[in-house]
């Protein structure tokens, strides 16, 4: 379990992480969601003891990272796939890491096999593609067979095949009873990968819930109704206390599903020309929640386009 209590990081005048408190439960994939620049990587570096918090603390199973004995056996992390010397082979990179935590050298070949890098183990890591580097980073994270795993934007820049592989892999790790904490700025990706969500914007906690609840709560469920008997229908709907909105020649109903509206229309004898559920996209929901806290505004519409394009 990872626990952040009042975690704060200040760089000069900017507050990168602001009094952030959350817990990452065991046996689940927890997504760490926020727009670029929200403070996700800084938070992860503080959890790993690389950056010192200005205030508060981050604990792993109740301990500071610094106080862990042979930390790679407790926490595996992939913060950046490029943290490898380009002239060192993949195997040599894992070898020194294994040695540092007295991990059996045989484990190096095991993890290389798990991530599918056995055939290029002796090649220099500088020549690896992004996908291969990412796999090497995951191999390094798995080296000590840790109970807690942290991944920072692991699918960034990967092709669909690589994304699918990582997604399945995270699920498997959680099923094995591990704590998996994975950051992303893409809600659509997190909706598929994570069961729990910690959402932040501008360094502040926005919400911590299950992914399901977050999506349900965030996406407004509305139904569009078109009818030649709109005024009668409006009166009938108005009595139920749902909220109504006119949109051209149609009515947008919030707080009632299609079946209920259809039944109500039948009982009032109103003919329906259209009865269609409108589901807000995940991206819109995300923007709705974090919209006010995007660090670098590019104009909302452009931002939605960027997010939707997966950039």
């Amino acid at each position: 379990m990872i626990e952040a209590v009042g975690l704060t990081k200040r760089y000069g005048k900017t507050l990168a992480v602001d009094n952030l408190s959350f817990t990452v439960p065991t046996g689940r994939v927890t997504g760490f969601l926020g727009p670029n620049g929200a403070g996700k990587s800084t938070t992860m570096r503080m959890i790993l003891g690389l950056d010192a918090p200005t205030g508060g603390s981050a604990l792993i199973d109740g301990k500071h990272y610094r106080d862990l004995h042979q930390p790679l056996r407790t926490v595996g992390a992939l913060l950046d796939a490029k943290w490898v010397h380009p002239n060192r082979s993949a195997r040599a990179h894992l070898q020194w890491m294994a040695k540092s935590n007295k991990i059996n050298p045989k484990r190096v070949d095991e993890v290389l096999d798990i991530v599918g890098l056995t055939s290029v183990a002796n090649k220099r890591a500088g020549g690896f593609s992004l996908g291969m580097s990412q796999r090497l980073g995951i191999a390094a994270a798995l080296l000590g067979d840790p109970q807690v795993l942290l991944f920072d934007e692991p699918v960034n820049g990967l092709d669909p095949e690589g994304i699918l592989w990582i997604r399945k892999f995270m699920h498997r790790l959680a099923e094995e009873g591990r704590t998996v904490f994975v950051s992303s700025h893409l809600l659509s990706e997190m909706a598929l990968t994570a069961q729990e969500l910690v959402v932040i914007g501008r360094g502040k906690l926005i919400s911590q819930t299950s992914t399901e609840d977050f999506v349900a709560q965030a996406t407004e469920n509305t139904v569009r109704v078109r009818s030649p008997h709109l005024s009668a229908l409006r009166t009938a709907l108005g009595r139920t206390g749902v909220s109504l909105r006119d949109e051209g020649d149609s009515l947008v109903v919030t707080g009632m599903d299609c079946a209920e509206i259809g039944e109500l229309a039948a009982s009032t004898g109103a003919v329906l020309h259209e009865l269609s559920p409108q589901r807000g996209s995940l991206e819109e929901a995300f923007m709705q929640l974090t919209g006010d806290s995007v660090e670098y505004h590019a104009g909302l519409a452009e931002t939605i386009d960027l997010v939707a394009a997966g950039k």
């Binding site: 003891g49 610094r66 790679l72 010397h85 540092s100 390094a140």
Partner: peptide, 13 residues
């Protein structure tokens, strides 16, 4: 190459 971070991650001391 930021391997110093990987080093401090493996050896927090």
């Amino acid at each position: 190459f930021s391997t110093i971070r990987a080093t401090f991650q493996a050896i927090p001391n």
